[in-house]
Design a protein around this nucleic acid. Structure first.
Lengths: 155, 155
DNA sequence: TTCCGTGCAAACAATTTGCAATAGA
DNA sequence: TCTATTGCAAATTGTTTGCACGGAA
């Protein structure tokens, strides 16, 4: 149950001077056993499956701590609440504005853009934290002339 | 005062069967005379400078309509509320996670990524609606080894 | 023993909604 | 006239905060 990344996270808390609590361990374990893309609410459900009494505010505070310690990060995928994942799982998201489908793509896809931006502006894009909107292959084929079709529902 | 894009927006409302109201005209004009990147709250201030009695809920409803009619769009820049701009002003935003600076870049910067994504996945990215996070040239130089420096404050 | 971490409830910001009154076409 | 649009107030959603208590170190 205590996988390597759970242990690493706990060690990171300890090294930072933080205390290892039941609540924090529970949040790490819930993140570890779920896939990524979890909202705070979904993560809370996962936590509550094992520890029903942990407070939602504590989960938020724990996630905030994790982000400071580079243990976990949130990303914005389309509209709606932030979604959380452990730090070792770096990839990107394409969100279809029409059908809301989320497509994961590897970090390397961004290499050409990364190089171009660094050359042009010196800006270094982060390998997490943002998603791209557009239309997936099927929806693009279905609405070839409507670049903003479905926009109002997905934004 | 009634610039070309104000007239075009009004015509788009008329063509869609919507009514031309004082409120809607006021929102278009406020968008037209301000720069982009306005939050709904800032836009409301701009509207209220001319028409103090227009309701905030109406402004939200008007923006929703404008988005459906491709008159205006919102973008997510870093954390915080959505920001609004007229449809003819297409560009992208880089947000520095450390100093919150916003850098505008032309749409063409994304051409390499656009081509790659369409080839790899068929996904068509939209020329608006998302921003990219990272570190600007100065902040990247100041913290070369900390890819996530400042993350907690900007997310 | 010391504070850090937590629970609870309340505050918060941004937005959305229901419904009756109003005003474009 | 007729119904889309608006105002108002209340509801929602996601998240944060103050404060007193309890538990890691």
């Amino acid at each position: 149950m205590a996988t390597e990344r759970v242990e690493e996270a706990i060690e990171a808390i300890r090294l930072s001077g933080g205390r290892i609590t039941v609540d924090r361990r529970a949040v790490i374990e819930a993140l570890d056993r779920s896939d990524d893309h979890l909202t705070a609410e979904q993560l809370a459900d996962a936590v509550w499956a094992q520890h029903p009494d942990i407070n939602l505010a504590t989960i938020y505070r724990t996630l905030e701590l994790f982000e400071r310690l580079d243990i976990a990060f949130h990303v914005h995928i389309g509209h709606g609440p932030s979604r959380w994942h452990l730090a070792d799982d770096v990839h990107h998201h394409l969100v279809c504005e029409v059908c809301d489908k989320v497509i994961e793509i590897p970090d390397s896809t961004f290499d050409p853009l990364r190089v171009r931006l660094e050359t042009d502006t010196g800006f270094v894009i982060d390998p997490h934290h943002f998603s791209l909107s557009g239309r997936c292959a099927e929806c693009a084929a279905a609405t070839p002339d409507a670049p903003n079709a479905g926009e109002a529902s997905q934004g």
